[in-house]
């Protein structure tokens, strides 16, 4: 790990383009201990000095779930047998995505002290965010267990949708954060743009409602197609729900393929952008 006596560091003016994603994974492997350290640092300091500690990472989603549940009981007559479960898991998964993106956006800026002291691949900061948020997600998903038990939901092969959807959500958030974190070093408006976009996204994505409320609504079918392409998070959240409840996805496999490929493309383009711009960007810190 790190660098030893005989390793030679060579820095050129040229930046990688097509090799950028590979270079990135090579760096991640080489600096995996540092990645682990950053994640555990964040976990240690997140709830430092608070009494309930980890409880806060589930208190907010639980409070929101109760709120939306009551709201739906009053406003809507659609019947979803698993509603509390679907709302809660939607909020938890969305939080994973939103926090990764928003904290990833400011990652370079927040760590400027370290960046200006010693060289290591700066993408570590973005990846440590997604790692940290993933641990948080898995920890808070413990509260789902009583609900699963209550609804008698026994995991089937559908459960495989869950890791796939989480992987894709992580790639999407990291891919976007590759762009936003670099822009943030130069233009501090970026974090506010991200905050607003995530707030809007929270309502336009089936976070506290199900996808069929959009697809089987007054919206014509061709528009709901466009909606699914434009908002990959809608697909991933629905995949996560189906993984546990076994409900049909309601998304065609061709739509799935397009959505997943677009996310992978965003990730790859983001990694190239990041690797090419990062060295200019750190001078702005």
């Amino acid at each position: 790990m790190g660098r030893d006596e005989d390793s030679v560091l060579e820095l050129h003016a040229e930046t990688p383009t097509l090799s950028a994603p590979f270079k990135m994974f090579q760096n991640l492997r080489e600096y995996r201990h540092l990645l682990r350290h950053f994640i555990s640092r964040d976990l240690k300091t997140r709830y430092h000095g608070s009494i309930i500690g980890w409880g806060w990472s589930i208190a907010e989603p639980l409070a929101l779930t109760v709120t939306f549940y009551i709201l739906f009981a009053i406003l809507s007559d659609s019947t979803d047998p698993y509603r509390p479960f679907n709302i809660l898991i939607g909020i938890l998964a969305w939080t994973f995505f939103a926090r990764t993106l928003s904290r990833g956006t400011t990652a370079l800026q927040r760590n400027s002290g370290l960046i200006q002291r010693i060289y290591f691949p700066r993408e570590i900061f973005i990846f440590s965010q997604v790692g940290f948020q993933l641990v948080q997600l898995l920890l808070s998903m413990i509260v789902l267990i009583p609900l699963l038990y209550h609804y008698d939901l026994i995991p089937t092969a559908d459960i495989l949708y869950f890791p796939l959807a989480i992987l894709m959500m992580g790639m999407l958030a990291v891919g976007l954060a590759f762009f936003t974190s670099i822009i943030q070093t130069k233009v501090r408006d970026m974090e506010h743009i991200v905050t607003v976009a995530l707030r809007i996204g929270f309502y336009l994505t089936p976070v506290f409602y199900n996808l069929d409320m959009i697809t089987s609504s007054r919206i014509p079918a061709e528009y709901s197609d466009i909606y699914l392409y434009a908002n990959p998070m809608a697909t991933y959240l629905t995949m996560i729900r189906s993984a546990f409840t076994g409900a049909p996805l309601g998304i065609s496999s061709s739509q799935l393929v397009v959505t997943i490929s677009s996310t992978v493309l965003i990730f790859l383009l983001g990694s190239i952008f990041f690797m090419r711009r990062e060295r200019k960007a750190v001078k702005n810190l």
């Binding site: 003016a13 002290g113 200006q116 060289y119």
Partner: peptide, 29 residues
């Protein structure tokens, strides 16, 4: 290696430490 050159090449061998204005980069908590 904190700033990559805009032209030319920098080669260094081994572990590098930059001692400048110590104390930053720490975590307060």
């Amino acid at each position: 290696g904190i700033y990559a050159p805009d032209e030319g090449t920098v080669r260094t061998r081994g572990r590098i430490t930059l001692l400048a204005g110590v104390g930053t980069g720490f975590n307060r908590d």
